[in-house]
């Protein structure tokens, strides 16, 4: 389990996170939901140790990330992969080079082993045959899948997704969500930051709703939907209305 206890962080006099406490269950998909600027992505950066909080602690495998040495942080980052919102692929490198760039011990692997590793990862994200293309030659959805393949190169226990479906068309969105589900079946824990309700509900097991740097609700979808918090009600309004509207419900069932 990854635990965030009483995390607060202020950047340039702006409160980013205020006394945030949350638990991330291993082997489950945890969704961090909230509007833009709520502090969702900051949670991912804090889990990875990219940002150090002003107060509080992050416990991963029983160790406080805030008190880890640089070497321990490096070891932690090999267990946690991240898919950035803008993909953060290196423009000057091919797809294969992007995926292998961070691979530890790659110098010890033979060319055939590296080729097999690339093929395996690209096949997992349905991008076989693209190893020699450059990021500029890929579509938005393909770039996202390369970023996922890169995050998986380490065989991480946890994958952090920052707005994985934002800006993608429905087909690419669906393929990304399928990949997140596939990872869960393989035993990988995913933490997905998003503001898109439909995507969150499709892959989420646990939900954390955040607004203005504070957690306003956390738990299963049922618990969230029963919440009396006005912000949660407003955020989930459309979903609640659709699920209580018999015409929309029937139309969805017919479409299925």
């Amino acid at each position: 389990m990854i635990e965030l206890k009483n995390i607060s962080i202020t950047l340039n006099d702006n409160v980013i996170l205020d006394d945030v406490t949350l638990n991330i269950e291993m082997g489950m998909n945890t969704i961090v939901l909230g509007p833009s600027g709520a502090g969702k992505s900051s949670i991912l950066k804090i889990i990875l140790g990219l940002w150090k909080p002003d107060n509080g602690e992050i416990i991963f495998e029983g160790k406080n990330v805030c008190k880890m040495t640089d070497d321990e942080i490096l070891q932690l980052r090999k267990k946690v992969g991240i898919v950035f919102q803008g993909n953060a692929l290196f423009d000057s490198l091919t797809v294969a080079e992007n995926i292998l760039y961070f691979l530890p011990g790659k110098k010890k692997l033979s060319e055939n082993e590296l080729k097999y590793k690339i093929e395996e990862l690209l096949s997992f994200v349905n991008l076989s045959g693209t190893e020699n293309l450059y990021p500029e030659e890929l579509s938005g959805g393909m770039k996202k899948r390369v970023a996922i393949a890169r995050a998986l190169a380490f065989n991480p226990q946890v994958v952090l997704f920052d707005e994985p479906t934002t800006g993608l068309d429905p087909i690419n969105t669906e393929s990304i969500l399928e990949l997140i589900e596939k990872l869960k079946q393989n035993g990988t824990t995913s933490v997905v930051v998003t503001h898109i309700l439909d995507d969150a509900i499709e892959v989420g097991d646990n939900f954390i709703v955040i607004n203005e740097g504070k957690i306003v609700e956390a738990g299963s979808l049922e618990k969230i939907l029963r919440s009396k918090n006005p912000f949660v009600n407003e955020f989930f309004k459309r979903f609640i209305e659709e699920n209580h509207n018999p015409f929309i419900r029937i139309s969805k069932e017919v479409n299925k």
């Binding site: 990219l50 490096l74 980052r77 090999k78 992969g81 991240i82 803008g86 953060a88 760039y101 961070f102």
Partner: peptide, 13 residues
């Protein structure tokens, strides 16, 4: 700006 520096840090480089 395109988070590539964060990516380097995130992947242990």
């Amino acid at each position: 700006l395109s988070e590539q520096i964060d990516a380097l840090r995130a992947f242990g480089a």
